[in-house]
Design a protein around this nucleic acid. Structure first.
Lengths: 215, 215
DNA sequence: AAATATATATAGGACTCCTATTTATGCAAG
DNA sequence: CTTGCATAAATAGGAGTCCTATATATATTT
C-alpha cells in the first residue's frame, strides 16, 4: 500500500497493537498488585515462583522478568522485607541462592488469584471462539520462535514439554495428548505456563514442533 | 478440560502469552531507547507526540501511557531537561499546557525510526501471512472493545476514523477504502496509529464497526 | 459571586532499573 | 595444588518511574 501515507509493515502494526494492549495489562497489574500491597514486579516474581517448590535462582528470575540481575536482587530484597520470599542456599552451588516463597507469600497469591477478570481478558472474551483459538496458537508460535533464538527463557508451554504429543488423535476438537495426565485436549487448551511442564530435549522438541506445525 | 491439572480459561492463557511477549518488547524498548540516551517511557512520549503538531496535554499523555498525571509530569520534565519537548500554553484553556516536540526531539526520533527490527517483530514475521492478518484483526477488535469501555484512550485506528469505509469494494484483497487518500486497501493494512486519523462521531463509528465486523 | 470541577504542579516516599565493581565460589590447566 | 578465568550474587551510586495526597490556578456552573 504505497498509496497510504504512513510507512510500516504488518509486523510493525502488530507490534503497535500488542504494545497498546500491553499498556492496559500493565495498568491492571498495578491494580491487582496494589490490592495486595505490592507492585507489579513483586507480584510477577511471586507468580513466577508459584508451583516451583525448589525455587529459582536470582539469575533465573532476572531472565524471566527481562531485567538485569541487580534489579532482580533489588526486587527480591523488597519481597524479603515483606517476608514473602526467603533465600535458601543451593545445595549444588554455594555461589547460588534459591528464592522460594514463604507461606505468607503463598497466601497472598492465593487471595489474589481467581479474582478480577480485568479489561484485557474481557477484550479477549469479545473475540469469537475460533479467533481466540487462532490468537492463542499464534502467540504460542511467536513465543516458541523467541525461545529458539534465546530471546526469552524457556517457557512452560506444551510445545516444549516432553509429555506433549500433538495430533495424537483424529478428534478435531481434541487432537493433542498430554501424557502427564494421560488425556486428550484441544488447541484452546494449550498451556503457556504449565506447572507439570518438563522440558523435552532439543531433538524431541524439534520433532514435536514439526508435528504441531503441520497440523 | 477438567482432566488437566491447571485451571484457567483460554482468556487467561492468552493473557499470559501476551504478557510474555510484552516482556520481550519492553526489553527491546529499553535498548532502542538507550541508544538515544533515553528510557522507554521518554521514548514513548516522543513517539506519541510524533505527527501531532498541536501537541498533547499532560493529561492526554498520562492517559496514553497509562500512568498517573503526576508521573506524566515527571517524565515530561525529564524530557524538558533534555530539551526534547517544550510546553506551550493552550490558547483555549489557560490551565492546560500543550507539550510539543522540539526540533532536537524530532531529530532523535528520526534517527531511531527505521532501524532495529527486534526479536518481537521477528517473531511476528515467523507467522504465515494469513495468520498475521488474523492477528492484526484480532488486536484491532480487542483495542476497539477497550475503547468502547473507556479502558484505553481513543486510538488512531481506521475503524474509529471518519475517513474509513469498510468493505466498500468487492476486491477480496483490498476491500476497504480510505477517503483521506482515496484508495482501496486490505485487512493487513489496517492502521493502529494513523497520523491522518480523525475520530468519527459515535454514530458513524458504530455504523462503521458494524460493517467491518460482518465482513 | 460562591461553589464546584478541572488541569497541572509539588511534596514525599518506595522502588525499579541501569552500569560498574566487589566478593565468593566453581572449574580448568599447568 | 595453585594460578587464573568464569560465574552467581551483592553492593555502590545515581537517574528516573510511579504512586497518593495536596496545593494552585483557572474554568464552569449556579
Amino acid at each position: 500500500m504505497e498509496t497510504m501515507k504512513e510507512p510500516g509493515s504488518v509486523n510493525h502494526r502488530i507490534r503497535e497493537g500488542l504494545s497498546r494492549i500491553a499498556t492496559v495489562m500493565r495498568n491492571e497489574d498495578w491494580n491487582r498488585a496494589k490490592a495486595s500491597g505490592l507492585n507489579p514486579t513483586q507480584l510477577s516474581i511471586l507468580e513466577l515462583l508459584e508451583g516451583r517448590g525448589d525455587g529459582l535462582t536470582v539469575k533465573e528470575i532476572a531472565a524471566n522478568l527481562g531485567v538485569s540481575q541487580p534489579t532482580a536482587t533489588d526486587s527480591i530484597a523488597a519481597l524479603e522485607r515483606k517476608e514473602l520470599v526467603t533465600k535458601n542456599s543451593d545445595g549444588a552451588d554455594r555461589r547460588a541462592v534459591k528464592v522460594v516463597m514463604t507461606p505468607k507469600g503463598r497466601s497472598i497469591l492465593a487471595a489474589k488469584t481467581g479474582s478480577s477478570v480485568g479489561a484485557a481478558q474481557d477484550a479477549v472474551g469479545a473475540l469469537a471462539n475460533a479467533e481466540q483459538e487462532e490468537l492463542l496458537v499464534s502467540l504460542v508460535k511467536m513465543i516458541r520462535h523467541l525461545q529458539e533464538r534465546d530471546a526469552i527463557p524457556i517457557q512452560r508451554m506444551c510445545v516444549s514439554c516432553r509429555y506433549f504429543t500433538p495430533y495424537a488423535h483424529s478428534d478435531a476438537v481434541r487432537p493433542h495428548h498430554c501424557q502427564f495426565v494421560d488425556a486428550a485436549f484441544g488447541q484452546r487448551d494449550l498451556r503457556i505456563d504449565c506447572r507439570e511442564h518438563e522440558t523435552a530435549d532439543p531433538t524431541l522438541r524439534a520433532a514435536t514442533w514439526n508435528l504441531f506445525e503441520k497440523g
